[in-house]
Computed example of a mutant assay.
Amino acid sequence: MMISVRPGDTLSYYSKLFRIPVNLIEEANPKVDSSNLKVAEKIVIPGYVTVPYTIQAGNTIWELAITNKIAEDTLFLLNPTKDVDQLKVGETLFVPEKIVTPFVKFHSPLNYKRLEKLIQSFKKVYPFIRVTTIGTSVEGKPIQEIRIGKGAKKIHINASFHANEWITTMVLMSIVNNYLLSLTNGTVMNGQKVNQWYEDIELSIVPMVNPDGVDLVVDGPPAKLQRKLIEINDGCDDFIHWKANISGVDLNNQFPANWDICRKNKLPKAPAPRDFPGEAPLTEPEAIAMAKLAENNRFDLIIALHTQGEEFYWGYEGYEPEEAEALAKEIEYFSGYQAIRYVKSHAGYKDWFIQEFKRPGFTIELGKGINPLPLSQFPEILKRGEAIFSAVLSH
Rank of each mutant, 00 (worst) to 15 (best):
E26D: 10
E26Q: 09
A28L: 12
N29Y: 09
N29S: 12
N29I: 15
P30A: 11
K31A: 14
V32F: 14
D33N: 15
S34M: 10
S35H: 04
S35G: 11
S35N: 15
S35V: 08
N36G: 12
L37H: 03
L37R: 02
K38R: 15
V39K: 13
A40H: 13
E41L: 12
K42E: 10
K42N: 07
V44E: 11
V44Y: 06
V44G: 01
P46K: 08
P46A: 10
P46D: 05
P46L: 12
G47T: 02
G47K: 00
Y48C: 03
Y48R: 12
V49Q: 06
V49F: 07
P52C: 08
P52E: 06
Y53Q: 02
T54Q: 08
T54V: 15
T54D: 04
I55V: 15
Q56E: 15
Q56D: 13
A57M: 09
G58T: 09
N59G: 09
N59I: 14
N59W: 11
T60P: 10
I61K: 07
I61S: 05
W62N: 13
E63A: 15
E63T: 10
E63L: 14
A65C: 07
A65S: 15
A65R: 14
I66G: 04
I66D: 11
I66F: 04
I66Q: 14
I66Y: 04
T67W: 06
K69I: 00
A71I: 02
A71K: 14
D73P: 06
L75D: 02
L75P: 02
F76G: 00
L78D: 00
P80E: 11
P80F: 12
P80R: 08
T81Q: 08
K82V: 01
K82L: 15
K82D: 12
K82F: 02
D83F: 03
V84C: 04
D85N: 15
D85F: 02
D85A: 02
D85L: 04
L87K: 05
K88Y: 03
K88M: 09
V89R: 11
T92K: 05
L93T: 12
L93R: 05
V95E: 04
V95S: 05
V95T: 01
P96D: 00
P96T: 04
E97C: 01
E97Y: 04
K98S: 00
I99K: 07
I99T: 07
V100N: 04
P102V: 11
F103V: 02
F103A: 06
F103Q: 00
V104E: 11
K105D: 01
H107K: 14
H107S: 11
S108Y: 10
S108I: 08
P109I: 13
N111T: 07
N111L: 10
Y112M: 05
R114P: 01
L115I: 08
L115F: 09
E116T: 14
E116W: 07
E116V: 15
L118W: 03
L118I: 14
I119K: 08
Q120H: 13
K123G: 03
K124I: 11
Y126E: 07
Y126Q: 04
P127S: 06
F128Y: 14
I129F: 00
V131T: 10
V131F: 04
V131E: 12
V131R: 06
T132I: 01
T132M: 01
T133R: 09
I134R: 10
G135A: 12
S137W: 03
S137D: 10
V138S: 07
V138D: 09
V138Y: 13
